[in-house]
Write a protein that binds this DNA or RNA. Sequence first.
RNA 1: GCCAUUGUAGCUCAGGGGUAGAGCACUUCCUUGGUAAGGAAGGGGUCGCGAGUUCAAUUCUCGCCAAUGGCUCCA
Length: 646
Amino acid sequence: MINITFPDGRVKQYITGITALEIALGISEGLARNVLSAKVNGEVIDATRPINSDASLQLLTWNDPEGKSTMWHSSAHLMAESVEHFYPGAKFGIGPDIENGFYYDIDFGERLISENDLKKIEDKMLELAREKQKYIRKEVSKPDAVKYFTEKGDEYKLELIEELEDGQITFYESGKFTDLCRGPHLPDTSPIKAVKLLNIAGAYWRGDEKRKQLTRIYGITFPKKSELDEFLVKLEEARKRDHRKIGKELELFTFSQKVGQGLPLWLPKGAQLREKLEQFLKKVQKEAGYDPVITPHIGNVELYKTSGHFDKYGADSFQPISTPIEGEQFFLKPMNCPHHCEIYKSKPHSYKELPIRYAEFGTVYRYEQSGELHGLTRVRGFTQDDAHIFCTPDQVKEEFKGVMKIVMIIFKALEFNNFTVQISLRDPNNKEKYIGTDENWEKAEKAIIEVAEETGLEAEIVLGEAAFYGPKMDFMVRDAIGRKWQLGTIQVDYNLPERFELEYKGSDNEKHRPVMIHRAPFGSMERFVAVLIEHTAGKFPLWLTPDQVIILPISEKFQKYAEKVFSFLNNAELRAQIDDRSEKTGKKIRDAELMRIPYMLIVGEQEETEELVAVRKQGEGDKGKMTLQAFVQMVNKEIEKSLEIN
RNA sequence: GCCAUUGUAGCUCAGGGGUAGAGCACUUCCUUGGUAAGGAAGGGGUCGCGAGUUCAAUUCUCGCCAAUGGCUCCA
């Protein structure tokens, strides 16, 4: 007999070799039907595997993230079985569960697969699922595993087996499909009641662009049809928040094939919004002791040879432009830091001057691969809210914290609550990707990690994500459909100061090397605005939104009064408009609601005689009548509140 | 850059070997209306670009460009 400890602390005795599924059945048949897998002593295993010694047990169902994982991983196998039915000889790469569903990478050989083929694969999956196929785990010796996939002709699985140790290899068999797999899996296919294959994409084998591209099919499954429907509705809702869609609706930005792909054109309303953001940050930076600088959009190739950018990215950049007579070569600037280093070098510095903080909304140009371009989040020309802090080594931490404070001020003002912090270090196994000495890297990485610890900020450490000249702390935010984007970034750099031979005179009258901190709290204006649009669904905070107020006269007769209201608001520095179209009030309200204008002021006979305005708030409705003074006061209060800095 | 899909009016989209249609938007007129769409008339398109097949191509084929979903990349 063995003792099984349940999550609530209860302990029960069972016969040795009992399975989680049998334990569940002993509790209730309904529970057994819902068990997808089991967590035994912290490890997720098949609910059908025997438990041979005392253990803690948690039965995993659809309500547990691990239960969902099991279901989706098993669904990938089910999809593979269906694919194999239609495309015998298809070879399979990897097929894991992911955050929302699963995928499988498949080599279809010469056959072309398109989205039109997904329906039949889906239907077959449902048909197979109804057969209640059992997932059967088998331990296989390495030679037997190799033999099986050699006979099947699946070189991908053979490559995976090569890397496994004999004695650790398991196969899972369900229906007619057998896969190399660690598991765990469902007891059988019956929980899979709803299937949706979402999209099809190319994916390089093992993520290596030099290797063959396989066909990746993404899908998701649910234990209830209604849950699938809910999921699809949610997906649709998320797409409505897409910044590309809202950007078009609200006339914020556009692209032109003639101007060039990845080169955004900011429309008046978008420019208005962006300028407000810039003014906000400029004010914060002024208080934090930054000095604005301005540098040109191009720089001599020698500048980038010095910085190391030429070696690292020269071949993958927009190629240099050259002067017609002298033949000098200039690159469009991909970074502002080399220019700022030269500003630092324009005169000698004493330790007494440090830290020096040069700030610039610097527009940079980077050649991004065409397939990577994406709305405003990934573009070829963009403006960084860049600054470079030159400081002494013992000022690094304090300066770093100062920058973090600015990032937090911004995130608070814009109500970004669900960001994550990532510390990006270099890949210790791939040091040739980076410039600088080990000693400098260690110093820089240590500084960032210590700051994170001292400020109590929860950060995920990711190796291999550092910039080529230094480690960084990135602030990540998700977009409407769950993609992660880097916004703010703070980077500690001991390397560029060396390359540019930056110096300051210390109190010892000796020359010393400053440390550089690169930082951009927004990241880029383009990406920040994109994410802001998706977070707010276009309903920007009042202080930021391009049109704050729209005045809706009931009819032409009240045009004069509307103009009076307009000039009052204008004098109060509110951004207002009059909708003087010959339309009914209902229509004007509808349009203003759709344009997400925060306040509508309806003016008619009553308002004119009483010298009032009828206030309607976007998304909320009628707020009643008030004087213009009271309205302006209310609006200013709302603005002040959201811009409060503490 | 790679794989798949898509490209028709300012926007959203229908159509399809015989040179095009809807709704919204726009212009004009009527209407002067009180909290999410008043009515009528009108203008607007080299059907992404280029070649090929055909008596005839927006439609079929190929190439290019761009967008979308992924992969790779991201100073």
